[in-house]
Amino acid sequence: MFEARLTSAATLKKVLEAVKELLNEASFDCSDSGIQLQAMDNSHVSLVSLTLRSDGFDKYRCDRSLTMGMNLASMSKILKCANNDDTVTIKAQDDADTVTFVFESKKQEKISDYEMKLMNLDQEHLGIPETDFSCVIRMPSVEFARIVRDLAQFGETVLICCTKEGVKFSVSGDVGSANVKLAQTNNFDKEEESVSIEMQEPVSLSFACQYLISFTKATPLSPRVQLSMSSNVPLVVEYEIAELGYIRYYLAPKIED
């Protein structure tokens, strides 16, 4: 028996929004410790890694580990039927070929359930090596989304250069070029608005804008985003999900032809 309950369907809706642009379907691996998802996008350029810890749920029970392959468009249709403040419970029997989503309104006057067929997905898991990153940038997630959206208008590739002074995002294309520089702030009063940089050595890497835009669909999950970079390894874009877990996106850097 698997059962996981969240008092706010809004969180699950946001999690789904954060992955469904990159993934058509995904396997949710459920165990005692929580729910995990690891999947590459269709073109195998980026990787999504989601962890929802069991202790972050309002109720969590997983008698036997199970993998639930879900079509994310179908899951999205179902979650649209929930109000943000509904309680949501995800249920499945051991070895089941369906999963059930139960939505309960705050006053319990409306209870709905939606059963969805599970899929057998042949998904391969990748081993992600531990990396000591040369640069770790933390900034407001809304600011990152804004920069990516603004610059993507002018080119397909963004160059991110990080030094101890700050981080520079640059794009060039047919129209011309654009640069956004963010200085490290010492804004101790408003930590949420600060830009902080931990740098071992400077890094310059190029990335496809379209993937960064997809990653920023996670912005509603967290006020902060963390970018971790080292030369010649994938960028990690991480959003913490308060008291529940995190979503990390890995993106292979572009290299010179």
Partner: peptide
Amino acid sequence: MFQPAITSFFTRK
């Protein structure tokens, strides 16, 4: 520029 796959950085389990 060339876009490599993520699998060229991470090993398959």
